[in-house]
Structures are given as structure tokens and as C-alpha cells.
Amino acid sequence: MNVFDTTTATAAGLGQVGSVADAVRARANIFEMTQAAEDAVLRPNETGALPHDLRAALAARMARQAGETRLAEHHLAGAGALTNLADPQQDGGKMHAGLISFVDKVATQTRDIAARDIVDLQGAGMSDPDIVRLCELVAFVAYQIRVVAGVRLMQGAVA
């Protein structure tokens, strides 16, 4: 894949000319591996209890919370019938309230996460492998958001 076609580059509005493009080209391996990570985290073969549409909706929600509109649109395209969860104002309703409150806290108040938050997920019936999958998803998207925001800033545009 051309590095300029990766999600991170397109969401940052990166053109192919100029010193920022040159810097990205010099780190093409990293942008390609970032794309491979998106594929593995958003659309894994083994989904556990977190199907692709749910993962995409949560990623879109996080991108919106961070004000990353283009990245949010990209993820929203995979959210299927769960697009409502991508709205940061929605609490997830009966079915997803616990999940959403955990995702929001890991994404935006990381420092306040405590052992109790994991115990609560376990108490709600989430398996340990699914807890790890959920954390990888939120953690990867937190990374992706910041690379996109940073590369856009480098080009001199305001978020």
C-alpha cells in the first residue's frame, strides 16, 4: 500500500509534496505498520465478543470525542447498524452502557482508571480475553488519533 493511501495519512489530509510528506516517506514502514495495526485491531479474524461493526462504532466515537472528523467518518463507515454508539452523547443504552462508560474512561480519563474498572467488566460477564481485546482497540485508536492530529499540525492546518 502507498503510504499516502493509509488511513492515518488520508485522515490527516497529507499531500505527497513538501517537507512533511518527505518525513512521512522516510518513515513509510511505520505508516504501513500502523495500517496493519488498524486492520488487526479493527477487523481481526478472531473477534471474541467484539464484532467488527462494534469496534468501528467505538473507534468513530473516540475520533469524534477528539474532534477528528475525517478519521471518525472513516471508522463510521464500518459501524453498520451501530452508528448510534458513535455519537459521544449516547450512553449505549441497556445493552452497551457498561462497555461505553469503560471505553470513554480509558479514552479520555486514562489516568483515573483503577482496578475496580476491570472488576466491573468482569462482573458484567466480560471474559479476560475480551477485556484485553477492548483495551487494544481503545489504545490503538488513541494512538491513531494523535498521529493524525500531529501530522495535520505539522502541515500548518488547524484542527
Binding site: V106, R111, I113, I118, A139, V147, G150
Partner: peptide
């Protein structure tokens, strides 16, 4: 250098959300 700084600090946005949470 600025790109490497973006990448290394963003990467820890990822790592922290595993290590500190799990």
C-alpha cells in the same frame, strides 16, 4: 524529528492504555 516525536508520544498513548489499564 517532529514526526518522530509525534510517533513516540502517540505510541505511548497506546502503551499507557494497556499497561495502566490492565
Amino acid at each position: 524529528e517532529i514526526l518522530d516525536l509525534i510517533l513516540s508520544s502517540a505510541l505511548f498513548g497506546w502503551a499507557n492504555r494497556l499497561m495502566h489499564v490492565l
